[in-house]
Design a protein around this nucleic acid. Structure first.
Lengths: 167, 167
DNA sequence: TTAATATTTCAATATTTTTTGAAAGTTTGA
DNA sequence: TCAAACTTTCAAAAAATATTGAAATATTAA
């Protein structure tokens, strides 16, 4: 496998994997491209390399910046904007975990809490609803804590210890 | 909030959350319904409660069974098939982690490994591609181990210790 | 202030994904 | 073996999502 093959394989794999962490194909591909690019890229560069439209590129770059994993960069004496991705994969994971917690997990936790707090009326169906949503609430809460703390900050130390412990 | 409101809220939340763990709305809603139902439900029951077609119900039940989180049950003297979900949320999480590892993480790890093994040709772009895909490979590998071991089996003990340690 | 360059927005379009429903298939009791 | 009860399949339709591209907006150098 040569460079170009490897590059394309990586970009398309990352692209289809995107849906997995909740982002669309173009967005994931732009991210992949920036992640392996030693130099910041302009919008033109990205459009050309991925064969996508200007509008698409613009919107998805914005979203990637909202996720906090892609940044604008300005080159001196140039009007054009350039973009880079977060290159440290630990930091990348941290940022993604943080955003997913905020966007998905926390709202869910809130709803589970509300639902599990309805009045117990003695019927089997109510008991079951309360029991299961309570269990899910507890689990989601644990997961949220883990995501925000373990992956959270002083990552490497804990992860390494954990992996050694378990592997 | 009364029972019906809570139930609907739970089902629709779980439904939209489905996309998050990689399954579609109907599938997630069927799962939610079964999870809080004290009794096994028939296909008719499900169709009626969720207002979805027979075909849709059939296909999605099959997929849930493929995921190993919904089971067929036969009532004596009845021809109809009934369905239940895995009720233990720990076991549910374990099963989902296992399947996601198998379906998504492991294939990705394989590709990252291949891509990161291309020949170093001394150019900056090749260096960067190798460096980043290696880092991702390592991280994906760690994540896979964690998913399969921590959530894996003797769950509660480790999780509790971990949470205590971190919280 | 203008004109050139660059970016964003968004309605229209294209693509992908999900859902339907009826026909085909399966199972079982008589 | 038949036919009733039930389930699965899959082509067509609907719905949801992503993408385009051109007009509108913004930015800057002269």
């Amino acid at each position: 496998m040569n460079y170009d093959e490897a590059k394309n394989k990586f970009i398309s794999t990352w692209g289809s994997l995107g849906t997995l962490w909740g982002i669309n194909k173009a967005m994931a591909q732009i991210h992949a491209l920036l992640l392996i690019s030693p130099e910041p890229l302009s919008m033109e560069d990205i459009m050309e390399q991925l064969q996508i439209s200007r509008g698409n590129t613009s919107m998805n770059l914005r979203q990637l910046m909202d996720w906090g994993i892609v940044f604008k960069e300005n080159k001196m004496g140039e009007r054009k904007e350039y973009f880079t991705s977060e290159k440290d994969v630990q930091e990348l994971a941290r940022q993604i975990a943080k955003e997913r917690s905020r966007r998905e997990l926390q709202p869910t936790i809130k709803i589970l809490k509300d639902v599990s707090n309805i009045d117990e009326d003695g019927t089997a169906k109510t008991k079951e609803l309360i029991k299961q949503t309570k269990a899910l609430h507890e689990m989601a809460d644990t997961l949220d804590t883990l995501m925000n703390r373990v992956i959270g900050q002083d990552h490497n130390w804990i992860t390494k210890a954990l992996v050694k412990l378990i592997k």
